[in-house]
Design a protein around this nucleic acid. Structure first.
Length: 403
DNA sequence: TCTGGGGTCCTTAATCTA
DNA sequence: TCTGTAGATTAAGGACCC
Protein backbone atom coordinates (compact mmCIF):
# COMPACT_ATOMS: atom_id res chain seq x y z
CA UNK A 1 0.00 0.00 0.00
CA UNK A 2 1.36 3.38 -0.95
CA UNK A 3 1.40 6.06 1.66
CA UNK A 4 2.18 9.74 1.19
CA UNK A 5 5.57 9.77 2.92
CA UNK A 6 7.60 7.03 1.27
CA UNK A 7 6.54 5.19 -1.80
CA UNK A 8 9.07 2.43 -1.54
CA UNK A 9 9.49 1.59 2.12
CA UNK A 10 7.77 1.13 5.43
CA UNK A 11 7.37 4.25 7.54
CA UNK A 12 10.13 4.98 9.97
CA UNK A 13 10.04 6.19 13.53
CA UNK A 14 12.06 9.37 13.78
CA UNK A 15 12.67 10.95 17.16
CA UNK A 16 13.60 14.57 17.72
CA UNK A 17 15.06 15.51 21.08
CA UNK A 18 15.29 19.10 22.23
CA UNK A 19 16.98 20.00 25.49
CA UNK A 20 14.89 22.37 27.64
CA UNK A 21 16.39 25.86 28.14
CA UNK A 22 19.71 24.09 27.69
CA UNK A 23 22.28 26.73 28.70
CA UNK A 24 20.19 28.10 31.56
CA UNK A 25 19.36 24.61 32.84
CA UNK A 26 23.05 23.70 32.97
CA UNK A 27 23.87 26.82 34.99
CA UNK A 28 20.99 26.11 37.38
CA UNK A 29 22.13 22.52 37.76
CA UNK A 30 25.69 23.55 38.61
CA UNK A 31 24.80 26.40 40.96
CA UNK A 32 21.97 25.59 43.39
CA UNK A 33 21.56 29.29 44.17
CA UNK A 34 20.13 29.73 40.66
CA UNK A 35 17.42 27.07 41.00
CA UNK A 36 13.92 28.45 40.65
CA UNK A 37 15.30 31.87 39.65
CA UNK A 38 15.00 33.75 36.36
CA UNK A 39 18.36 33.07 34.68
CA UNK A 40 19.22 34.81 31.42
CA UNK A 41 22.22 33.63 29.40
CA UNK A 42 23.66 36.01 26.82
CA UNK A 43 24.99 39.55 26.84
CA UNK A 44 25.18 41.46 30.12
CA UNK A 45 22.77 44.36 30.73
CA UNK A 46 24.26 47.63 29.55
CA UNK A 47 26.08 46.02 26.66
CA UNK A 48 25.07 45.39 23.08
CA UNK A 49 23.76 41.92 22.56
CA UNK A 50 20.85 39.55 22.82
CA UNK A 51 19.44 36.77 24.98
CA UNK A 52 20.79 33.36 24.10
CA UNK A 53 18.66 31.30 26.50
CA UNK A 54 16.19 32.26 29.23
CA UNK A 55 15.22 29.85 32.01
CA UNK A 56 11.52 29.06 32.27
CA UNK A 57 11.29 31.38 35.29
CA UNK A 58 12.62 34.23 33.12
CA UNK A 59 10.25 33.34 30.27
CA UNK A 60 7.35 34.16 32.63
CA UNK A 61 8.50 37.77 32.35
CA UNK A 62 8.34 37.59 28.58
CA UNK A 63 12.09 37.17 28.10
CA UNK A 64 12.83 35.25 24.90
CA UNK A 65 15.79 34.05 22.87
CA UNK A 66 17.18 36.67 20.45
CA UNK A 67 15.59 39.52 22.42
CA UNK A 68 17.87 42.56 22.88
CA UNK A 69 19.39 42.36 26.33
CA UNK A 70 18.19 45.89 27.12
CA UNK A 71 14.62 44.73 26.59
CA UNK A 72 15.18 41.62 28.70
CA UNK A 73 16.50 43.80 31.52
CA UNK A 74 13.47 46.08 31.28
CA UNK A 75 11.17 43.09 31.56
CA UNK A 76 13.12 41.26 34.23
CA UNK A 77 15.39 43.63 36.17
CA UNK A 78 15.82 41.09 39.00
CA UNK A 79 16.92 38.37 36.61
CA UNK A 80 20.34 36.77 36.93
CA UNK A 81 22.31 37.66 33.79
CA UNK A 82 25.20 35.35 32.86
CA UNK A 83 27.68 35.11 30.00
CA UNK A 84 27.58 31.75 28.24
CA UNK A 85 30.11 29.09 29.18
CA UNK A 86 30.50 27.39 25.83
CA UNK A 87 32.90 24.64 26.81
CA UNK A 88 30.57 23.37 29.51
CA UNK A 89 27.63 23.27 27.11
CA UNK A 90 29.61 21.40 24.47
CA UNK A 91 30.59 18.82 27.06
CA UNK A 92 26.97 18.34 28.17
CA UNK A 93 25.92 18.09 24.53
CA UNK A 94 28.45 15.33 23.93
CA UNK A 95 27.11 13.48 26.96
CA UNK A 96 23.60 13.67 25.51
CA UNK A 97 25.00 12.27 22.26
CA UNK A 98 26.55 9.31 24.11
CA UNK A 99 23.23 8.47 25.74
CA UNK A 100 21.46 8.60 22.37
CA UNK A 101 24.01 6.33 20.73
CA UNK A 102 23.07 3.62 23.23
CA UNK A 103 19.53 3.71 21.82
CA UNK A 104 20.35 3.66 18.11
CA UNK A 105 23.47 4.08 16.00
CA UNK A 106 21.61 6.52 13.76
CA UNK A 107 22.04 9.74 15.71
CA UNK A 108 22.42 13.19 14.23
CA UNK A 109 23.28 16.09 16.50
CA UNK A 110 21.42 18.89 14.69
CA UNK A 111 22.80 21.59 16.99
CA UNK A 112 24.27 21.85 20.46
CA UNK A 113 20.92 21.10 22.11
CA UNK A 114 18.99 19.11 19.51
CA UNK A 115 19.25 15.70 17.92
CA UNK A 116 17.44 13.41 15.51
CA UNK A 117 17.47 9.66 16.15
CA UNK A 118 16.12 6.97 13.84
CA UNK A 119 14.63 4.49 16.33
CA UNK A 120 12.93 2.27 13.74
CA UNK A 121 15.37 -0.55 14.31
CA UNK A 122 15.41 -0.19 18.09
CA UNK A 123 11.75 -1.01 18.63
CA UNK A 124 12.19 -4.78 18.52
CA UNK A 125 14.94 -4.57 21.11
CA UNK A 126 13.78 -1.85 23.44
CA UNK A 127 10.01 -1.57 23.12
CA UNK A 128 7.49 0.86 21.67
CA UNK A 129 8.49 4.37 20.54
CA UNK A 130 6.91 5.75 23.72
CA UNK A 131 8.92 3.36 25.88
CA UNK A 132 12.12 4.35 24.09
CA UNK A 133 11.37 8.04 24.53
CA UNK A 134 10.81 7.59 28.27
CA UNK A 135 14.02 5.59 28.50
CA UNK A 136 15.99 8.42 26.88
CA UNK A 137 14.38 11.10 29.00
CA UNK A 138 15.00 9.13 32.19
CA UNK A 139 18.66 8.55 31.36
CA UNK A 140 19.21 12.23 30.61
CA UNK A 141 17.47 13.17 33.83
CA UNK A 142 19.29 10.70 36.08
CA UNK A 143 22.79 11.00 34.67
CA UNK A 144 22.89 14.65 33.52
CA UNK A 145 20.22 16.18 35.80
CA UNK A 146 18.64 17.87 32.77
CA UNK A 147 15.28 17.56 31.05
CA UNK A 148 14.51 17.17 27.37
CA UNK A 149 11.40 17.32 25.23
CA UNK A 150 10.86 14.57 22.70
CA UNK A 151 8.79 14.30 19.55
CA UNK A 152 8.27 11.16 17.49
CA UNK A 153 6.83 10.99 13.99
CA UNK A 154 7.27 9.32 10.61
CA UNK A 155 9.81 11.92 9.44
CA UNK A 156 12.01 14.79 10.59
CA UNK A 157 9.42 17.51 10.13
CA UNK A 158 6.76 15.83 12.25
CA UNK A 159 9.26 14.79 14.94
CA UNK A 160 10.62 18.32 15.18
CA UNK A 161 7.24 20.02 15.40
CA UNK A 162 6.07 17.39 17.91
CA UNK A 163 9.04 17.92 20.25
CA UNK A 164 8.00 21.56 20.57
CA UNK A 165 4.39 20.78 21.51
CA UNK A 166 4.77 19.98 25.17
CA UNK A 167 7.82 21.79 26.49
CA UNK A 168 9.45 21.45 28.95
CA UNK A 169 9.96 17.76 29.75
CA UNK A 170 7.40 16.86 27.08
CA UNK A 171 6.69 13.85 24.94
CA UNK A 172 4.49 13.93 21.84
CA UNK A 173 4.01 11.01 19.47
CA UNK A 174 2.33 11.49 16.11
CA UNK A 175 1.31 8.39 14.19
CA UNK A 176 1.47 8.40 10.45
CA UNK A 177 -2.31 8.30 10.18
CA UNK A 178 -2.59 11.39 12.39
CA UNK A 179 -0.13 13.62 10.54
CA UNK A 180 -2.56 15.75 8.51
CA UNK A 181 -4.90 16.32 11.44
CA UNK A 182 -1.93 17.13 13.70
CA UNK A 183 -0.68 19.81 11.30
CA UNK A 184 -3.99 21.36 10.29
CA UNK A 185 -4.64 23.60 13.30
CA UNK A 186 -1.02 24.72 13.79
CA UNK A 187 0.08 28.20 12.70
CA UNK A 188 2.24 28.18 9.56
CA UNK A 189 5.16 29.55 11.62
CA UNK A 190 5.48 26.14 13.30
CA UNK A 191 7.05 24.86 10.09
CA UNK A 192 10.83 25.20 10.50
CA UNK A 193 11.97 27.58 7.79
CA UNK A 194 8.91 29.83 8.05
CA UNK A 195 10.06 32.87 9.97
CA UNK A 196 8.62 36.32 10.41
CA UNK A 197 8.78 37.38 6.76
CA UNK A 198 7.29 34.25 5.27
CA UNK A 199 4.55 34.18 7.90
CA UNK A 200 3.58 37.78 7.09
CA UNK A 201 3.51 37.00 3.39
CA UNK A 202 1.24 33.99 3.98
CA UNK A 203 -1.02 35.90 6.38
CA UNK A 204 -1.56 38.52 3.68
CA UNK A 205 -3.03 35.79 1.49
CA UNK A 206 -5.37 34.74 4.30
CA UNK A 207 -3.21 31.76 5.21
CA UNK A 208 -2.70 31.47 8.97
CA UNK A 209 -2.84 27.73 9.65
CA UNK A 210 -1.15 24.80 7.98
CA UNK A 211 -4.56 23.40 7.02
CA UNK A 212 -5.27 26.59 5.05
CA UNK A 213 -1.88 26.31 3.38
CA UNK A 214 -2.69 22.77 2.30
CA UNK A 215 -5.88 24.00 0.64
CA UNK A 216 -3.86 26.05 -1.88
CA UNK A 217 -2.73 24.48 -5.13
CA UNK A 218 0.91 23.77 -5.85
CA UNK A 219 0.56 25.93 -8.93
CA UNK A 220 -0.57 28.93 -6.88
CA UNK A 221 2.16 28.52 -4.28
CA UNK A 222 4.87 28.21 -6.92
CA UNK A 223 3.59 31.20 -8.88
CA UNK A 224 3.51 33.32 -5.70
CA UNK A 225 6.66 32.11 -3.91
CA UNK A 226 8.84 30.66 -6.64
CA UNK A 227 9.80 27.11 -7.50
CA UNK A 228 11.83 26.44 -4.39
CA UNK A 229 9.75 28.07 -1.66
CA UNK A 230 6.47 27.11 -3.32
CA UNK A 231 7.42 23.45 -3.45
CA UNK A 232 8.67 23.65 0.11
CA UNK A 233 5.35 25.05 1.37
CA UNK A 234 3.33 22.54 -0.64
CA UNK A 235 5.26 19.57 0.75
CA UNK A 236 5.50 20.71 4.35
CA UNK A 237 1.79 21.47 4.57
CA UNK A 238 1.24 17.80 3.73
CA UNK A 239 3.76 16.56 6.26
CA UNK A 240 6.17 15.51 3.53
CA UNK A 241 9.81 15.65 4.59
CA UNK A 242 13.00 13.65 4.75
CA UNK A 243 13.26 10.71 7.11
CA UNK A 244 17.03 10.28 6.73
CA UNK A 245 19.09 10.67 9.88
CA UNK A 246 22.82 10.87 10.35
CA UNK A 247 24.05 12.68 7.27
CA UNK A 248 27.19 14.39 8.53
CA UNK A 249 27.44 17.80 6.98
CA UNK A 250 30.62 19.24 5.61
CA UNK A 251 31.25 22.79 6.62
CA UNK A 252 30.95 25.35 3.83
CA UNK A 253 32.41 28.45 5.45
CA UNK A 254 34.29 29.81 8.44
CA UNK A 255 33.49 33.28 9.71
CA UNK A 256 34.29 35.50 12.68
CA UNK A 257 32.83 38.87 13.51
CA UNK A 258 33.02 41.50 16.23
CA UNK A 259 30.48 44.06 17.34
CA UNK A 260 32.13 47.00 19.06
CA UNK A 261 30.88 48.32 22.39
CA UNK A 262 30.26 51.61 20.61
CA UNK A 263 30.51 52.51 16.93
CA UNK A 264 34.07 53.33 15.93
CA UNK A 265 35.94 55.15 13.19
CA UNK A 266 39.35 54.37 14.65
CA UNK A 267 41.16 52.82 11.70
CA UNK A 268 43.90 51.39 13.93
CA UNK A 269 41.26 49.59 15.90
CA UNK A 270 39.61 48.27 12.73
CA UNK A 271 43.00 47.18 11.42
CA UNK A 272 43.78 45.36 14.69
CA UNK A 273 40.36 43.73 14.76
CA UNK A 274 40.67 42.46 11.19
CA UNK A 275 44.11 41.10 12.06
CA UNK A 276 42.68 39.21 15.04
CA UNK A 277 39.66 37.91 13.16
CA UNK A 278 41.90 36.76 10.29
CA UNK A 279 44.16 34.80 12.59
CA UNK A 280 41.15 33.25 14.37
CA UNK A 281 39.91 32.08 11.00
CA UNK A 282 43.34 30.81 9.99
CA UNK A 283 43.62 28.83 13.22
CA UNK A 284 40.21 27.23 12.73
CA UNK A 285 40.96 26.43 9.10
CA UNK A 286 44.29 24.78 9.90
CA UNK A 287 42.82 22.87 12.83
CA UNK A 288 40.20 21.41 10.50
CA UNK A 289 42.56 20.92 7.58
CA UNK A 290 40.62 23.33 5.36
CA UNK A 291 41.54 26.25 3.16
CA UNK A 292 39.35 28.63 1.21
CA UNK A 293 39.63 30.73 -1.91
CA UNK A 294 36.80 33.20 -1.30
CA UNK A 295 37.23 35.93 1.27
CA UNK A 296 34.33 38.04 2.52
CA UNK A 297 34.41 41.30 4.43
CA UNK A 298 31.30 42.11 6.41
CA UNK A 299 30.68 45.56 7.75
CA UNK A 300 27.80 46.95 9.75
CA UNK A 301 27.53 50.71 10.00
CA UNK A 302 25.58 53.03 12.27
CA UNK A 303 21.90 52.24 12.05
CA UNK A 304 22.45 48.53 11.31
CA UNK A 305 23.18 49.16 7.63
CA UNK A 306 25.02 45.99 6.61
CA UNK A 307 27.23 45.30 3.60
CA UNK A 308 29.47 42.55 2.36
CA UNK A 309 32.28 42.57 -0.15
CA UNK A 310 33.81 39.35 -1.37
CA UNK A 311 36.43 38.21 -3.81
CA UNK A 312 37.37 34.75 -5.06
CA UNK A 313 41.05 34.10 -5.68
CA UNK A 314 42.37 31.20 -7.71
CA UNK A 315 44.41 29.86 -4.83
CA UNK A 316 43.00 28.72 -1.52
CA UNK A 317 44.63 29.70 1.76
CA UNK A 318 44.62 28.81 5.45
CA UNK A 319 47.30 31.32 6.40
CA UNK A 320 46.68 34.24 8.77
CA UNK A 321 48.71 36.74 6.72
CA UNK A 322 47.14 35.86 3.40
CA UNK A 323 43.62 35.98 4.84
CA UNK A 324 44.39 39.32 6.42
CA UNK A 325 46.03 40.73 3.30
CA UNK A 326 43.03 39.72 1.20
CA UNK A 327 40.42 41.08 3.58
CA UNK A 328 42.41 44.28 4.10
CA UNK A 329 42.43 44.73 0.37
CA UNK A 330 38.63 44.47 0.33
CA UNK A 331 38.34 46.86 3.26
CA UNK A 332 40.65 49.52 1.91
CA UNK A 333 38.94 49.55 -1.49
CA UNK A 334 35.46 49.62 0.06
CA UNK A 335 33.42 52.83 0.04
CA UNK A 336 32.70 52.96 3.77
CA UNK A 337 36.12 53.48 5.28
CA UNK A 338 35.06 56.86 6.70
CA UNK A 339 31.80 55.92 8.41
CA UNK A 340 31.34 54.80 12.03
CA UNK A 341 31.48 51.01 12.19
CA UNK A 342 29.31 48.93 14.50
CA UNK A 343 30.53 45.48 13.44
CA UNK A 344 33.28 44.09 11.31
CA UNK A 345 33.69 40.48 10.20
CA UNK A 346 35.73 38.16 8.02
CA UNK A 347 34.61 35.01 6.22
CA UNK A 348 36.41 32.24 4.37
CA UNK A 349 34.45 30.07 1.95
CA UNK A 350 34.68 27.87 -1.13
CA UNK A 351 36.57 25.52 1.16
CA UNK A 352 38.67 22.56 0.13
CA UNK A 353 40.72 20.01 1.99
CA UNK A 354 44.33 20.91 2.69
CA UNK A 355 46.21 23.65 0.90
CA UNK A 356 46.30 21.97 -2.51
CA UNK A 357 45.57 23.41 -5.92
CA UNK A 358 42.02 24.05 -6.98
CA UNK A 359 39.64 22.60 -9.53
CA UNK A 360 39.42 26.09 -11.00
CA UNK A 361 42.86 25.66 -12.56
CA UNK A 362 41.33 23.48 -15.26
CA UNK A 363 42.64 23.92 -18.72
CA UNK A 364 40.05 24.29 -21.49
CA UNK A 365 38.99 21.00 -23.08
CA UNK A 366 40.42 21.97 -26.47
CA UNK A 367 42.92 19.17 -26.88
CA UNK A 368 42.75 15.44 -26.50
CA UNK A 369 45.15 15.72 -23.61
CA UNK A 370 43.07 18.13 -21.67
CA UNK A 371 40.03 15.97 -22.31
CA UNK A 372 41.86 13.21 -20.52
CA UNK A 373 42.50 15.57 -17.68
CA UNK A 374 38.84 16.44 -17.63
CA UNK A 375 37.86 12.80 -17.50
CA UNK A 376 40.20 12.30 -14.56
CA UNK A 377 38.71 15.30 -12.85
CA UNK A 378 35.20 13.99 -13.44
CA UNK A 379 36.17 10.71 -11.82
CA UNK A 380 37.50 12.57 -8.83
CA UNK A 381 34.36 14.68 -8.68
CA UNK A 382 32.21 11.56 -8.85
CA UNK A 383 34.08 9.96 -6.04
CA UNK A 384 34.56 12.89 -3.70
CA UNK A 385 31.94 15.45 -4.71
CA UNK A 386 32.36 18.50 -6.87
CA UNK A 387 34.26 20.43 -4.22
CA UNK A 388 36.99 17.79 -4.09
CA UNK A 389 40.48 19.09 -4.60
CA UNK A 390 42.90 17.76 -7.10
CA UNK A 391 46.20 16.59 -5.61
CA UNK A 392 48.98 18.96 -6.68
CA UNK A 393 50.83 16.22 -8.61
CA UNK A 394 47.79 15.48 -10.69
CA UNK A 395 47.42 19.10 -11.77
CA UNK A 396 51.00 19.92 -12.57
CA UNK A 397 51.54 17.81 -15.71
CA UNK A 398 48.53 19.37 -17.43
CA UNK A 399 49.71 22.77 -16.32
CA UNK A 400 53.21 22.30 -17.68
CA UNK A 401 52.04 20.92 -20.99
CA UNK A 402 49.80 23.89 -21.43
CA UNK A 403 52.77 26.21 -21.12
C1' DT B 1 12.54 46.80 21.39
C1' DC B 2 17.14 48.10 18.90
C1' DT B 3 18.96 44.26 17.35
C1' DG B 4 25.37 38.60 19.01
C1' DG B 5 27.80 35.18 16.63
C1' DG B 6 28.08 31.27 13.95
C1' DG B 7 26.25 29.11 10.31
C1' DT B 8 23.05 27.46 5.93
C1' DC B 9 20.36 28.24 2.00
C1' DC B 10 17.86 31.17 -1.44
C1' DT B 11 17.35 34.91 -4.93
C1' DT B 12 18.86 37.95 -8.39
C1' DA B 13 21.81 39.75 -11.86
C1' DA B 14 25.97 39.80 -14.42
C1' DT B 15 29.38 37.29 -16.67
C1' DC B 16 31.73 33.22 -18.32
C1' DT B 17 31.82 28.89 -20.74
C1' DA B 18 30.73 24.23 -22.46
C1' DT C 1 33.15 28.00 -37.86
C1' DC C 2 29.34 30.50 -36.33
C1' DT C 3 25.65 31.18 -33.37
C1' DG C 4 22.63 30.51 -29.72
C1' DT C 5 21.77 28.98 -25.24
C1' DA C 6 21.76 26.29 -20.92
C1' DG C 7 24.31 26.03 -17.03
C1' DA C 8 28.13 27.48 -13.90
C1' DT C 9 30.22 30.76 -11.23
C1' DT C 10 30.59 35.14 -8.89
C1' DA C 11 28.91 38.77 -6.03
C1' DA C 12 25.56 41.05 -2.92
C1' DG C 13 21.82 40.87 -0.01
C1' DG C 14 18.49 38.61 3.00
C1' DA C 15 15.72 35.05 5.55
C1' DC C 16 16.19 31.79 8.78
C1' DC C 17 18.03 28.63 12.55
C1' DC C 18 20.16 27.72 17.22
Amino acid sequence: VKHPFRQDAMPKFIMHLDMDAFFAAIEQRDNPALKGKPVIIGALPGGRGVVSTASYEARKFGVRSAMPISEAYRRCPDGIFLRPNGRKYVQASEQVGEILKCISPQVEMASIDEAYIDITGSIKLLGSPGTIAMLVKDRIKSSLLLTASVGIGPNRLIAKIASDMNKPDGLTIVKESEVLEFLSALPVSKIPGIGKKAEEALNKLGIFYIGQLRARSERELISRFGESMGGFLFNKSRGISSDEVGREDIRKSISKERTFGEDTQDSDRLHRTLLNLSSDIGRTARKEGLSGRTITLKIRLEGFETHTRSHSYDTATDTDDVIFQRVWDLFSTSPWTEKPVRLIGVGLSDLSNGTGAQLSLFTPAKTLRSKKVHAAIDRIKDRFGKKAILPAQAVEPADKEKK
